[in-house]
């Protein structure tokens, strides 16, 4: 598969998706319009009329893309123009709440993951005993028990940013551990022997050989880790009547049937995820270039 000419296929697919979206808007919202017409005892709307009506409902079953876009602009761009970018009705404010928990959790998770990986690589007992449990730990559906962790930590007097960040930590440390263990072990025997003939100490071998050669693995893991950190933070906001954050917006939207609000929060979260992954990839290429490994 060649990398050339990726844009046109991608754009085609996106166009198809948007077209399907608009078609489903008409299809899914039409019953409501028919119902309305019947109740008002007026004639059933004509098809052309129906289309414009289904795309302008206040609480549609499926909002049209432009409705979501309008809502997004109303809660971000328009808020900035009004000079209140951090008001509680602005999506920027909610995104920031979620983002801060994501980043804190991501940082703790990365640090924990790297520490564990270093321990696993240098200590055989740790390798044999910790690694299986690291894997087992991920079969516990942490997202499912996230609400309980939040409630329990709240009861202990820890509230605010940290509980959410801890869920992100739990999710993000796993890919980092697995990736880093692989990366720190990636130098082959000949290279390690060379370090040995230089009579390099363990720490020298670590900093001059193992650490640099693990960088590609680290960044690949970080991309996964940052994406699931965001998921963790969002789910962490669902319970306990959280008042702020993208997850809280979704929950509030689902309580009050504000579908447009749910969709705009969802799109905002997607954009956030895309940006975070992009930043990590950018750091990846920059580090590799400085190490002279740029592809």
């Amino acid at each position: 598969m060649t990398s050339t000419g990726k844009t046109i296929p991608v754009l085609t697919i996106i166009t198809i998706i948007v077209a399907i979206w608009y078609a489903s808007v008409v299809w899914m919202n039409a019953p409501f319009e028919y119902d309305q017409a019947e109740r008002a005892k007026v004639e059933q709307p004509a098809f052309s009329e129906l289309i414009s009506k289904t795309m302008a409902q206040e609480r549609p079953v499926l909002p049209a893309p432009h409705q979501v876009a309008q809502e997004l602009w109303k809660t971000t761009g328009a808020m900035i123009q009004k000079g209140r970018p951090f008001s509680k009705r602005s999506l920027i404010y909610h995104s920031w709440i979620t983002l801060s928990a994501t980043l804190l959790g991501f940082l703790i998770g990365t640090a924990l993951g790297i520490t564990l990986a270093v321990g696993i690589v240098h200590n055989r007992a740790m390798d044999k005993s910790v690694m299986p449990w690291v894997i087992t730990s991920q079969t516990i559906p942490i997202l499912a028990i996230a609400p309980m962790i939040i409630v329990v930590l709240n009861a202990m007097g820890i509230s605010g940013l940290l509980p959410k960040a801890l869920i992100s930590t739990y999710l993000s440390f796993f890919p980092v551990v697995v990736g880093m263990v692989k990366g720190l072990r990636s130098p082959d025997a000949a290279q390690l022997d060379l370090m040995h003939t230089y009579s390099a100490s363990r720490s020298q071998a670590f900093w001059k050989l193992r650490w640099p050669s693990s960088m590609p693995y680290l960044f690949t893991s970080l991309k996964i880790a940052v994406a699931i950190s965001l998921v963790g933070a969002i789910v962490g906001e669902l319970p306990t009547g959280a008042v702020a954050g993208l997850g809280a917006r979704m929950l509030a939207g689902s309580y009050y049937g504000q579908t447009i609000q749910i969709w705009s929060a969802l799109l905002m979260a997607s954009a956030l995820a895309a940006i975070l992954v992009m930043i990590v990839s950018l750091a990846h290429t920059m580090v590799l270039r400085r190490m002279g490994q740029a592809t």
Binding site: I13, G247, S254, A274
Partner: peptide, 23 residues
């Protein structure tokens, strides 16, 4: 279609899909 769907599929796997739950 492959060239179009693969990058999109990779992108989608980074998204918080769990958010579609309320919908």
């Amino acid at each position: 279609l492959q060239r179009g769907l693969l990058p999109l599929g990779n992108f989608v796997s980074a998204l918080p899909i769990i958010g579609v739950a309320p919908i």
